[in-house]
Design a protein around this nucleic acid. Sequence first.
DNA 1: GAGATTAAGTAACGATCGCTATAATTGCAA
DNA 2: TTGCAATTATAGCGATCGTTACTTAATCTC
Lengths: 203, 203
Amino acid sequence: MPRPAKFDDDEILERAMHVFWRRGLSGASIRDLESELDLRAPSIYRRFGSKEGLAAAVVQRYVLEVIDGRIEKHLSGQGDPVSNVMGFLVSAVTPGPEEDLLLGCLLTTIAMETDALPEPLARDVRFGLRRIDDALRAEVRRAAEEGRLADGVVADDAASTLSLVMQGLMASARAGVGGEELRRRARGAVEMVTQPSVSQKTG
Amino acid sequence: MPRPAKFDDDEILERAMHVFWRRGLSGASIRDLESELDLRAPSIYRRFGSKEGLAAAVVQRYVLEVIDGRIEKHLSGQGDPVSNVMGFLVSAVTPGPEEDLLLGCLLTTIAMETDALPEPLARDVRFGLRRIDDALRAEVRRAAEEGRLADGVVADDAASTLSLVMQGLMASARAGVGGEELRRRARGAVEMVTQPSVSQKTG
DNA sequence: GAGATTAAGTAACGATCGCTATAATTGCAA
DNA sequence: TTGCAATTATAGCGATCGTTACTTAATCTC
Protein backbone atom coordinates (compact mmCIF):
# COMPACT_ATOMS: atom_id res chain seq x y z
CA MET A 1 0.00 0.00 0.00
CA PRO A 2 2.59 2.58 0.92
CA ARG A 3 5.45 3.89 -1.06
CA PRO A 4 8.52 1.82 -0.11
CA ALA A 5 11.21 3.52 1.95
CA LYS A 6 14.54 4.16 0.25
CA PHE A 7 16.46 2.96 3.29
CA ASP A 8 15.57 1.17 6.48
CA ASP A 9 16.33 2.73 9.85
CA ASP A 10 19.47 0.71 10.31
CA GLU A 11 21.04 1.95 7.08
CA ILE A 12 20.20 5.49 8.07
CA LEU A 13 21.61 5.14 11.58
CA GLU A 14 24.77 3.54 10.24
CA ARG A 15 25.45 6.49 7.98
CA ALA A 16 24.33 9.06 10.52
CA MET A 17 26.78 7.51 12.96
CA HIS A 18 29.63 8.31 10.61
CA VAL A 19 28.48 11.90 10.31
CA PHE A 20 28.25 12.42 14.06
CA TRP A 21 31.53 10.62 14.49
CA ARG A 22 33.36 12.88 12.12
CA ARG A 23 31.68 16.20 12.83
CA GLY A 24 30.49 15.83 16.40
CA LEU A 25 26.95 16.37 17.61
CA SER A 26 26.59 20.11 17.23
CA GLY A 27 29.02 20.12 14.31
CA ALA A 28 26.83 17.88 12.19
CA SER A 29 24.11 19.92 10.54
CA ILE A 30 20.88 18.64 9.08
CA ARG A 31 22.24 19.63 5.68
CA ASP A 32 25.30 17.48 6.29
CA LEU A 33 23.04 14.60 7.23
CA GLU A 34 20.79 15.17 4.22
CA SER A 35 23.64 14.73 1.77
CA GLU A 36 25.31 11.89 3.64
CA LEU A 37 22.07 9.95 4.15
CA ASP A 38 20.83 10.78 0.65
CA LEU A 39 17.56 11.73 2.30
CA ARG A 40 15.89 15.12 2.71
CA ALA A 41 15.23 16.71 6.07
CA PRO A 42 11.48 16.02 6.28
CA SER A 43 12.04 12.30 5.90
CA ILE A 44 14.59 12.38 8.68
CA TYR A 45 12.24 14.33 10.91
CA ARG A 46 9.29 12.07 10.21
CA ARG A 47 11.30 9.08 11.39
CA PHE A 48 13.29 10.48 14.28
CA GLY A 49 11.45 13.62 15.30
CA SER A 50 14.48 15.85 15.64
CA LYS A 51 18.21 15.94 15.15
CA GLU A 52 18.56 15.15 18.83
CA GLY A 53 16.22 12.18 18.40
CA LEU A 54 18.32 10.93 15.52
CA ALA A 55 21.45 11.31 17.62
CA ALA A 56 19.84 9.37 20.46
CA ALA A 57 18.88 6.57 18.07
CA VAL A 58 22.42 6.56 16.71
CA VAL A 59 23.89 6.30 20.18
CA GLN A 60 21.54 3.49 21.15
CA ARG A 61 22.41 1.60 18.01
CA TYR A 62 26.10 2.26 18.62
CA VAL A 63 25.91 0.81 22.10
CA LEU A 64 23.93 -2.24 21.03
CA GLU A 65 25.84 -3.02 17.86
CA VAL A 66 29.37 -1.69 18.21
CA ILE A 67 30.01 -1.64 21.95
CA ASP A 68 28.11 -4.78 22.80
CA GLY A 69 29.60 -6.43 19.76
CA ARG A 70 33.11 -5.73 20.96
CA ILE A 71 32.23 -6.80 24.48
CA GLU A 72 30.77 -10.10 23.30
CA LYS A 73 33.71 -10.71 21.05
CA HIS A 74 36.46 -9.87 23.49
CA LEU A 75 35.03 -9.90 27.01
CA SER A 76 32.72 -12.87 26.96
CA GLY A 77 34.36 -14.42 30.00
CA GLN A 78 35.95 -17.27 28.12
CA GLY A 79 39.52 -17.92 27.11
CA ASP A 80 42.55 -16.07 28.37
CA PRO A 81 41.35 -12.96 30.23
CA VAL A 82 44.55 -11.02 29.62
CA SER A 83 44.40 -11.60 25.88
CA ASN A 84 40.75 -10.69 25.99
CA VAL A 85 41.32 -7.38 27.73
CA MET A 86 44.19 -6.66 25.38
CA GLY A 87 42.02 -7.46 22.38
CA PHE A 88 39.24 -5.28 23.67
CA LEU A 89 41.41 -2.21 24.10
CA VAL A 90 43.20 -2.74 20.81
CA SER A 91 39.94 -3.29 18.95
CA ALA A 92 38.77 0.13 20.10
CA VAL A 93 41.65 1.76 18.25
CA THR A 94 41.69 -0.54 15.23
CA PRO A 95 39.55 0.57 12.31
CA GLY A 96 37.32 -2.21 11.01
CA PRO A 97 37.30 -3.25 7.37
CA GLU A 98 34.30 -1.09 6.54
CA GLU A 99 34.85 1.78 8.97
CA ASP A 100 37.18 3.75 6.76
CA LEU A 101 39.44 5.42 9.28
CA LEU A 102 37.21 6.04 12.22
CA LEU A 103 39.01 5.65 15.50
CA GLY A 104 37.81 6.42 18.94
CA CYS A 105 34.50 6.03 20.60
CA LEU A 106 31.38 7.86 19.56
CA LEU A 107 30.28 7.93 23.18
CA THR A 108 33.39 9.77 24.32
CA THR A 109 33.10 12.16 21.42
CA ILE A 110 29.53 13.04 22.26
CA ALA A 111 30.11 13.05 26.01
CA MET A 112 32.92 15.58 25.62
CA GLU A 113 30.92 17.92 23.46
CA THR A 114 29.28 19.88 26.21
CA ASP A 115 28.48 19.63 29.88
CA ALA A 116 24.81 20.07 29.09
CA LEU A 117 23.75 17.28 26.78
CA PRO A 118 20.00 16.89 26.41
CA GLU A 119 18.99 14.46 29.11
CA PRO A 120 17.82 11.40 27.17
CA LEU A 121 20.99 11.53 25.13
CA ALA A 122 23.16 12.00 28.21
CA ARG A 123 21.54 8.98 29.81
CA ASP A 124 22.21 6.83 26.76
CA VAL A 125 25.83 7.95 26.74
CA ARG A 126 26.32 7.16 30.41
CA PHE A 127 24.64 3.80 29.90
CA GLY A 128 27.11 2.87 27.18
CA LEU A 129 30.15 4.04 29.13
CA ARG A 130 29.03 2.11 32.19
CA ARG A 131 28.58 -0.99 30.10
CA ILE A 132 32.19 -0.77 28.97
CA ASP A 133 33.28 -0.23 32.54
CA ASP A 134 31.35 -3.20 33.87
CA ALA A 135 32.50 -5.61 31.19
CA LEU A 136 36.11 -4.57 31.63
CA ARG A 137 35.91 -4.95 35.39
CA ALA A 138 34.43 -8.43 35.15
CA GLU A 139 37.17 -9.64 32.84
CA VAL A 140 39.94 -8.07 34.90
CA ARG A 141 38.54 -9.75 38.00
CA ARG A 142 38.68 -13.00 36.16
CA ALA A 143 42.30 -12.30 35.30
CA ALA A 144 42.94 -11.65 38.97
CA GLU A 145 41.35 -14.94 39.98
CA GLU A 146 43.65 -16.72 37.59
CA GLY A 147 46.62 -14.90 39.03
CA ARG A 148 47.36 -13.06 35.84
CA LEU A 149 47.68 -9.56 37.29
CA ALA A 150 51.07 -8.13 38.13
CA ASP A 151 52.17 -8.38 41.75
CA GLY A 152 50.43 -5.97 44.05
CA VAL A 153 47.82 -4.94 41.50
CA VAL A 154 44.26 -4.80 42.80
CA ALA A 155 41.75 -5.99 40.22
CA ASP A 156 39.27 -3.14 40.48
CA ASP A 157 42.03 -0.54 40.43
CA ALA A 158 43.42 -2.15 37.31
CA ALA A 159 39.98 -2.23 35.73
CA SER A 160 39.20 1.40 36.39
CA THR A 161 42.66 2.38 35.22
CA LEU A 162 42.26 0.45 32.00
CA SER A 163 38.88 2.05 31.54
CA LEU A 164 40.52 5.44 31.85
CA VAL A 165 43.25 4.34 29.45
CA MET A 166 40.54 3.37 27.01
CA GLN A 167 38.93 6.77 27.20
CA GLY A 168 42.34 8.35 26.91
CA LEU A 169 42.95 6.37 23.74
CA MET A 170 39.70 7.72 22.31
CA ALA A 171 40.67 11.25 23.13
CA SER A 172 44.16 10.75 21.69
CA ALA A 173 42.66 9.37 18.51
CA ARG A 174 40.63 12.54 18.22
CA ALA A 175 43.68 14.63 18.90
CA GLY A 176 45.39 13.09 15.90
CA VAL A 177 47.56 10.31 17.31
CA GLY A 178 47.94 7.60 14.67
CA GLY A 179 46.46 4.13 14.90
CA GLU A 180 49.79 2.35 15.20
CA GLU A 181 50.87 4.50 18.12
CA LEU A 182 47.50 4.12 19.79
CA ARG A 183 47.67 0.33 19.61
CA ARG A 184 51.22 0.38 20.93
CA ARG A 185 50.12 2.40 23.92
CA ALA A 186 47.10 0.20 24.49
CA ARG A 187 49.30 -2.90 24.59
CA GLY A 188 51.77 -1.16 26.88
CA ALA A 189 49.05 -0.32 29.38
CA VAL A 190 47.67 -3.84 29.53
CA GLU A 191 51.12 -5.40 29.76
CA MET A 192 51.96 -3.16 32.65
CA VAL A 193 49.13 -4.34 34.88
CA THR A 194 49.41 -8.01 33.97
CA GLN A 195 51.96 -10.73 34.58
CA PRO A 196 54.66 -10.73 31.98
CA SER A 197 53.99 -13.65 29.66
CA VAL A 198 57.37 -15.36 29.89
CA SER A 199 57.01 -17.25 26.65
CA GLN A 200 56.67 -14.20 24.45
CA LYS A 201 58.61 -11.33 25.89
CA THR A 202 62.06 -12.66 24.99
CA GLY A 203 63.66 -11.44 21.82
CA MET B 1 45.11 59.68 24.79
CA PRO B 2 42.79 56.88 23.87
CA ARG B 3 39.72 55.73 25.60
CA PRO B 4 40.79 53.18 28.21
CA ALA B 5 39.83 49.57 27.62
CA LYS B 6 37.27 48.09 29.97
CA PHE B 7 39.33 44.94 30.40
CA ASP B 8 42.83 43.84 29.48
CA ASP B 9 43.39 40.83 27.27
CA ASP B 10 44.12 38.57 30.20
CA GLU B 11 40.81 39.27 31.87
CA ILE B 12 39.03 38.61 28.60
CA LEU B 13 40.88 35.38 27.94
CA GLU B 14 40.23 34.19 31.48
CA ARG B 15 36.51 34.61 31.07
CA ALA B 16 36.46 33.34 27.51
CA MET B 17 38.22 30.23 28.73
CA HIS B 18 35.31 29.51 31.04
CA VAL B 19 32.86 29.91 28.19
CA PHE B 20 34.75 27.55 25.88
CA TRP B 21 35.23 25.17 28.76
CA ARG B 22 31.57 24.94 29.51
CA ARG B 23 30.09 25.13 26.03
CA GLY B 24 32.84 23.78 23.82
CA LEU B 25 34.32 25.50 20.81
CA SER B 26 31.44 25.34 18.37
CA GLY B 27 28.93 25.42 21.20
CA ALA B 28 30.07 28.82 22.42
CA SER B 29 28.48 31.55 20.32
CA ILE B 30 29.65 35.10 19.95
CA ARG B 31 26.48 36.13 21.78
CA ASP B 32 27.44 33.84 24.67
CA LEU B 33 30.85 35.43 24.75
CA GLU B 34 29.42 38.94 24.55
CA SER B 35 27.36 38.50 27.68
CA GLU B 36 30.00 36.55 29.59
CA LEU B 37 32.80 38.97 28.71
CA ASP B 38 30.57 42.02 29.17
CA LEU B 39 31.93 43.20 25.83
CA ARG B 40 30.23 43.54 22.45
CA ALA B 41 31.22 41.57 19.38
CA PRO B 42 33.12 44.34 17.55
CA SER B 43 35.47 44.80 20.50
CA ILE B 44 36.16 41.10 20.57
CA TYR B 45 36.80 41.03 16.84
CA ARG B 46 39.05 44.07 16.90
CA ARG B 47 41.29 42.38 19.45
CA PHE B 48 41.28 38.77 18.29
CA GLY B 49 40.17 38.89 14.69
CA SER B 50 37.71 36.03 14.84
CA LYS B 51 36.09 33.58 17.20
CA GLU B 52 38.73 31.10 16.13
CA GLY B 53 41.45 33.65 16.89
CA LEU B 54 39.99 34.19 20.33
CA ALA B 55 39.92 30.44 20.90
CA ALA B 56 43.55 30.17 19.83
CA ALA B 57 44.53 32.92 22.25
CA VAL B 58 42.58 31.20 24.99
CA VAL B 59 44.33 27.91 24.31
CA GLN B 60 47.74 29.54 24.29
CA ARG B 61 47.02 31.25 27.56
CA TYR B 62 45.67 28.02 28.99
CA VAL B 63 48.85 26.18 28.10
CA LEU B 64 51.12 28.89 29.45
CA GLU B 65 49.22 29.64 32.62
CA VAL B 66 47.29 26.57 33.66
CA ILE B 67 49.23 23.67 32.15
CA ASP B 68 52.70 25.10 32.65
CA GLY B 69 51.64 26.25 36.08
CA ARG B 70 50.69 22.73 37.08
CA ILE B 71 53.83 21.32 35.51
CA GLU B 72 56.06 23.74 37.36
CA LYS B 73 54.24 23.13 40.59
CA HIS B 74 54.14 19.34 40.44
CA LEU B 75 56.69 18.16 37.89
CA SER B 76 59.62 20.45 38.49
CA GLY B 77 62.02 17.53 38.93
CA GLN B 78 62.53 18.05 42.63
CA GLY B 79 61.27 16.15 45.63
CA ASP B 80 59.61 12.76 45.57
CA PRO B 81 58.77 11.93 41.95
CA VAL B 82 55.92 9.59 42.86
CA SER B 83 54.22 12.20 45.00
CA ASN B 84 54.81 14.68 42.24
CA VAL B 85 53.16 12.56 39.57
CA MET B 86 50.34 11.82 41.92
CA GLY B 87 49.90 15.49 42.68
CA PHE B 88 49.94 16.35 39.00
CA LEU B 89 47.18 13.93 38.07
CA VAL B 90 45.06 14.80 41.08
CA SER B 91 45.47 18.53 40.46
CA ALA B 92 43.98 18.05 37.01
CA VAL B 93 40.74 16.84 38.54
CA THR B 94 40.68 19.14 41.53
CA PRO B 95 38.85 22.41 41.00
CA GLY B 96 40.87 25.41 42.12
CA PRO B 97 39.51 27.97 44.56
CA GLU B 98 38.46 30.33 41.82
CA GLU B 99 37.56 27.87 39.11
CA ASP B 100 34.03 27.21 40.27
CA LEU B 101 33.54 23.60 39.32
CA LEU B 102 35.52 23.25 36.15
CA LEU B 103 37.08 19.86 35.83
CA GLY B 104 38.91 18.39 32.92
CA CYS B 105 41.27 19.84 30.45
CA LEU B 106 40.33 22.50 27.96
CA LEU B 107 42.76 20.97 25.50
CA THR B 108 41.03 17.61 25.56
CA THR B 109 37.66 19.27 25.26
CA ILE B 110 38.68 21.21 22.20
CA ALA B 111 40.66 18.38 20.68
CA MET B 112 37.64 16.09 20.87
CA GLU B 113 35.30 18.55 19.24
CA THR B 114 35.99 17.62 15.67
CA ASP B 115 38.57 15.89 13.55
CA ALA B 116 39.02 19.03 11.54
CA LEU B 117 40.11 21.80 13.87
CA PRO B 118 41.42 24.89 12.11
CA GLU B 119 45.13 24.34 11.77
CA PRO B 120 46.66 27.00 14.04
CA LEU B 121 44.30 25.94 16.80
CA ALA B 122 45.05 22.26 16.23
CA ARG B 123 48.76 23.00 16.47
CA ASP B 124 48.33 24.85 19.75
CA VAL B 125 46.31 21.98 21.15
CA ARG B 126 48.89 19.39 20.13
CA PHE B 127 51.62 21.57 21.58
CA GLY B 128 49.90 21.65 24.95
CA LEU B 129 49.18 17.93 25.01
CA ARG B 130 52.76 17.14 24.10
CA ARG B 131 53.99 19.38 26.87
CA ILE B 132 51.99 17.37 29.39
CA ASP B 133 53.31 14.17 27.90
CA ASP B 134 56.93 15.29 28.04
CA ALA B 135 56.77 16.57 31.59
CA LEU B 136 55.07 13.43 32.80
CA ARG B 137 57.62 11.22 31.08
CA ALA B 138 60.54 13.10 32.57
CA GLU B 139 59.19 12.76 36.08
CA VAL B 140 58.32 9.08 35.66
CA ARG B 141 61.83 8.43 34.39
CA ARG B 142 63.14 10.10 37.49
CA ALA B 143 60.92 7.83 39.57
CA ALA B 144 62.38 4.86 37.70
CA GLU B 145 65.93 5.99 38.40
CA GLU B 146 65.11 6.12 42.07
CA GLY B 147 63.62 2.64 41.90
CA ARG B 148 60.14 3.83 42.72
CA LEU B 149 58.27 2.05 39.95
CA ALA B 150 56.57 -1.28 40.57
CA ASP B 151 58.53 -4.38 39.56
CA GLY B 152 58.68 -4.98 35.85
CA VAL B 153 57.25 -1.58 34.94
CA VAL B 154 59.08 0.23 32.14
CA ALA B 155 59.29 3.96 32.73
CA ASP B 156 58.12 5.13 29.33
CA ASP B 157 55.26 2.67 29.26
CA ALA B 158 54.17 3.92 32.66
CA ALA B 159 54.45 7.50 31.49
CA SER B 160 52.39 7.02 28.37
CA THR B 161 49.83 5.03 30.33
CA LEU B 162 49.52 7.74 32.94
CA SER B 163 49.18 10.27 30.17
CA LEU B 164 46.30 8.24 28.76
CA VAL B 165 44.82 7.97 32.25
CA MET B 166 45.02 11.72 32.51
CA GLN B 167 43.12 12.20 29.29
CA GLY B 168 40.66 9.55 30.40
CA LEU B 169 40.08 11.51 33.59
CA MET B 170 39.32 14.59 31.54
CA ALA B 171 36.83 12.72 29.42
CA SER B 172 35.24 11.14 32.48
CA ALA B 173 34.90 14.55 34.07
CA ARG B 174 33.03 15.68 30.98
CA ALA B 175 30.85 12.60 31.09
CA GLY B 176 29.72 13.53 34.56
CA VAL B 177 31.90 11.51 36.92
CA GLY B 178 32.26 13.41 40.19
CA GLY B 179 35.47 14.97 41.47
CA GLU B 180 35.86 12.62 44.41
CA GLU B 181 35.60 9.57 42.20
CA LEU B 182 37.99 11.06 39.65
CA ARG B 183 40.64 11.72 42.28
CA ARG B 184 40.19 8.22 43.68
CA ARG B 185 40.79 6.75 40.23
CA ALA B 186 43.76 9.02 39.64
CA ARG B 187 45.39 7.86 42.87
CA GLY B 188 44.60 4.24 42.04
CA ALA B 189 46.34 4.50 38.69
CA VAL B 190 49.50 6.06 40.08
CA GLU B 191 49.66 3.62 42.97
CA MET B 192 49.41 0.73 40.57
CA VAL B 193 52.51 1.61 38.59
CA THR B 194 54.61 2.63 41.57
CA GLN B 195 56.18 0.80 44.48
CA PRO B 196 53.74 0.44 47.34
CA SER B 197 54.78 2.93 50.00
CA VAL B 198 55.05 0.53 52.94
CA SER B 199 54.66 3.20 55.57
CA GLN B 200 51.24 4.36 54.43
CA LYS B 201 49.30 1.48 52.96
CA THR B 202 48.60 -0.24 56.29
CA GLY B 203 45.28 0.58 57.82
C1' DG C 1 -7.79 3.07 -13.33
C1' DA C 2 -9.51 5.45 -8.63
C1' DG C 3 -8.54 5.92 -4.04
C1' DA C 4 -5.88 5.17 0.01
C1' DT C 5 -1.60 5.17 2.26
C1' DT C 6 3.05 6.19 3.14
C1' DA C 7 7.00 7.52 1.58
C1' DA C 8 10.24 11.56 -0.27
C1' DG C 9 11.13 16.18 -2.10
C1' DT C 10 10.43 21.51 -2.70
C1' DA C 11 10.70 25.51 -0.60
C1' DA C 12 10.68 28.33 2.95
C1' DC C 13 9.91 29.73 7.90
C1' DG C 14 11.89 32.23 12.10
C1' DA C 15 16.02 32.09 14.81
C1' DT C 16 20.61 32.31 15.34
C1' DC C 17 25.15 32.10 13.48
C1' DG C 18 29.88 34.65 12.64
C1' DC C 19 30.95 38.98 11.45
C1' DT C 20 31.18 44.17 10.31
C1' DA C 21 29.99 49.21 8.68
C1' DT C 22 29.19 52.91 11.26
C1' DA C 23 28.35 55.89 15.00
C1' DA C 24 28.81 57.04 19.73
C1' DT C 25 31.88 57.26 23.86
C1' DT C 26 36.12 58.49 26.49
C1' DG C 27 40.43 60.07 27.41
C1' DC C 28 44.63 63.18 26.33
C1' DA C 29 47.03 67.01 23.73
C1' DA C 30 46.75 71.34 21.73
C1' DT D 1 37.21 73.85 23.51
C1' DT D 2 38.67 71.40 19.70
C1' DG D 3 40.78 67.63 17.47
C1' DC D 4 42.89 63.02 17.58
C1' DA D 5 43.11 58.35 18.87
C1' DA D 6 41.60 54.21 20.82
C1' DT D 7 37.92 52.05 22.56
C1' DT D 8 32.96 50.67 22.86
C1' DA D 9 28.11 49.91 21.40
C1' DT D 10 24.15 50.03 17.85
C1' DA D 11 22.28 47.82 14.34
C1' DG D 12 22.21 44.86 10.82
C1' DC D 13 24.54 42.11 7.04
C1' DG D 14 24.36 37.44 4.47
C1' DA D 15 24.62 32.66 5.65
C1' DT D 16 23.23 28.83 7.93
C1' DC D 17 20.78 26.70 11.60
C1' DG D 18 16.80 23.27 13.05
C1' DT D 19 12.42 22.67 11.59
C1' DT D 20 7.98 22.27 8.96
C1' DA D 21 3.77 23.33 5.62
C1' DC D 22 2.93 21.63 1.37
C1' DT D 23 3.45 19.05 -2.90
C1' DT D 24 4.82 15.04 -5.48
C1' DA D 25 6.02 10.02 -6.11
C1' DA D 26 5.31 5.21 -5.45
C1' DT D 27 2.94 1.18 -4.01
C1' DC D 28 -1.24 -1.65 -2.74
C1' DT D 29 -6.41 -2.61 -2.78
C1' DC D 30 -10.50 -2.36 -5.12
